[in-house]
């Protein structure tokens, strides 16, 4: 009962309220309230994630598994950021209420939390994703092979888009007048055609397929047919 029936009831009820709030205007406020709860739970999920990070890293340190020193660094940086953020240490005081410490702004670069964001978190995050440029190049060299019609189509389109997105496109075909009968040979026109017609059509079909899948899955969940979320417990 507690482990199966009530969760199923909660899911069906909350799902039904959200669907009902769309069709019945008097149920709209119910939908708002339930969505607000959902949003609060989303915020609690951040706390849960942080708690999980602490538990995992503490376990790694206590069992002295290889690389436990890095786990300690993770925990120290986490603890520092958490303390300066939650306690708003060094926060810029609120203009109207300078006497209330916790009313201050904690995320400007002038505060330790904001400084950590600006000079530690931001460059690290950006560089981590920037690495992908190197790996895309390596993968293109090793994996992009024109072996059949499909891969030739993929490669050909990629070449056109890669050229047309830069000044090379205009350099190669920009001399063809825009109002001439051969304007369709301009790389920028070909690229626009690919993106606006072919790629859009492909993505639209994928979207329609996904939408059908989401609708079916949502209905199965709300009607209590799919109960896979209970399986781990």
């Amino acid at each position: 009962m507690l482990q199966r029936t009530i969760p199923i009831a909660i899911l069906c009820l909350s799902g039904a309220i959200m669907v009902g709030a769309y069709f019945i205007s008097s149920a709209q406020s119910w939908g708002e309230t339930v969505t607000t709860w959902f949003n609060i739970l989303a915020a609690v999920a951040f706390v849960l994630g942080a708690g999980n990070l602490i538990a995992m890293n503490l376990e790694k340190i206590s069992s002295q598994r290889p690389g436990w020193g890095y786990a300690a660094i993770t925990l120290v940086s986490f603890a520092f950021m958490l303390v300066v953020g939650l306690l708003k240490l060094g926060a810029v005081p609120n203009d109207k209420h300078p006497d209330i410490h916790l009313a201050g702004s904690y995320d400007t670069p002038a505060s330790p939390f904001g400084w950590m964001y600006e000079y530690v978190m931001s460059p690290l995050t950006a560089t981590m994703f920037a690495l992908l440029a190197f790996y895309v190049a390596s993968a293109a060299f090793r994996a992009f092979r024109a072996k059949n019609t499909e891969s030739i189509l993929l490669l050909g389109t990629a070449f056109i888009v890669l050229l047309a997105q830069t000044a090379a496109g205009m350099f190669l075909t920009g001399w063809i007048p825009e109002d001439s009968a051969f304007a369709f040979l301009r790389l920028d026109k070909i690229k626009a055609g690919i993106i606006e017609h072919v790629q859009t059509a492909g993505m639209r079909a994928i979207m329609i397929g996904i939408a059908l899948g989401i609708a079916a899955m949502s209905l199965r969940l709300i009607l209590g047919i799919d109960r896979s979320y209970l399986s781990k417990n």
């Binding site: 951040f46 942080a50 990070l53 940086s77 530690v120 690290l124």
Partner: peptide, 15 residues
């Protein structure tokens, strides 16, 4: 490791 630590804390504090 620093990135993981500060990111988790940032999201938690922000939320």
């Amino acid at each position: 490791s620093v990135l993981i630590g500060v990111s988790a804390a940032y999201w938690m504090v922000s939320a």
